[in-house]
Design a protein around this nucleic acid. Sequence first.
DNA 1: TTGATTGCAAAGCATTTGCATGCTA
DNA 2: TAGCATGCAAATGCTTTGCAATCAA
Lengths: 173, 173
Amino acid sequence: MTAKKEDFKKEREIFLEHIQRSGLRRTAQRDLIMEIFLRTEDHLTSEDLYWLVQKEDATVGNTTVYRTLKLLTEAGLAREVRFGDNKTYYEHHYNHEHHDHMICTECGLIFEFFSPEIESLQDKMADKLGFRPTHHSLRIWGLCKTCQKVDTSGHAVASGAQPKVRMRSVTGS
Amino acid sequence: MTAKKEDFKKEREIFLEHIQRSGLRRTAQRDLIMEIFLRTEDHLTSEDLYWLVQKEDATVGNTTVYRTLKLLTEAGLAREVRFGDNKTYYEHHYNHEHHDHMICTECGLIFEFFSPEIESLQDKMADKLGFRPTHHSLRIWGLCKTCQKVDTSGHAVASGAQPKVRMRSVTGS
DNA sequence: TTGATTGCAAAGCATTTGCATGCTA
DNA sequence: TAGCATGCAAATGCTTTGCAATCAA
């Protein structure tokens, strides 16, 4: 989709605009946190982001990262996702079409996928119940290709649900 | 499905069996908590259940309810569900077919529904990604029939996402 | 009698809030 | 200069754990 080397020009613009419209102020911390968030194509928690920010500016506080992630969410650049481990993850939202997630319970790998058929069936179900849907969340847990092999023959190579690598999206079917 | 007045004979049996197999002990508290859980057809948090238990035996502690819900889950009688408000809800699991949820963001009403088509499409997607699914969760948020009407004309009659009423399941399509 | 169970209080964990200080606009 | 932003520490809300006393088997 965004074929050019991602420069996040539009994203920055959106963030600054949101800040101005809300009567807020642009600060070095917010800039830095946004930059690092934008260049990290991953599902990350506030703490994950905090440590990334720490590497570049150790004076930035935990709280500011939390608050800035909320801001990014309000601005439409980020989206909160939960995967059942009682943590809030954030993913890119701007220019990222709606999608669902598959989560490998062994290595923590997260796939994004999209199925128009599933979407339309969901709407059909809601309609049948007289329900007006605003948003939804579909998550499928299981074992990814790699962990299936490893899991049957012995111990996993990389376990612990830490990696949180984001695979390229798959659209189907 | 279970047409007769629910007596939960089988459920009790399962719980006791699980306790024995695990080398655990049957206690008055566990019995009481199980009974109240079984007779409450609802999605409830540990705290919800705690207060119901309090009404019948005020000496039972919070912690015991937590621990017993875990036990009930292990035994296969309960299942944990999360609706995004950072609380863990429990629903009946034994003899309750797999289903998904629609959650009214206005009144907290929870619908259960099941769509074999959606299920099979999910499996298809997983298969395409070489993913072996173990479980999944589909939740749709929005406004129920009642809250749609109320919401457009003025204030909601019953708001606050508290009721947590469980509607009869709907299967489709 | 033994060791699991209980209930209290305290600890954990992720997240939020209060507040004095610092800094944008 | 006004008042929003920051970062620390403390508070929160849900859940889990430590532990001495209790109780089932």
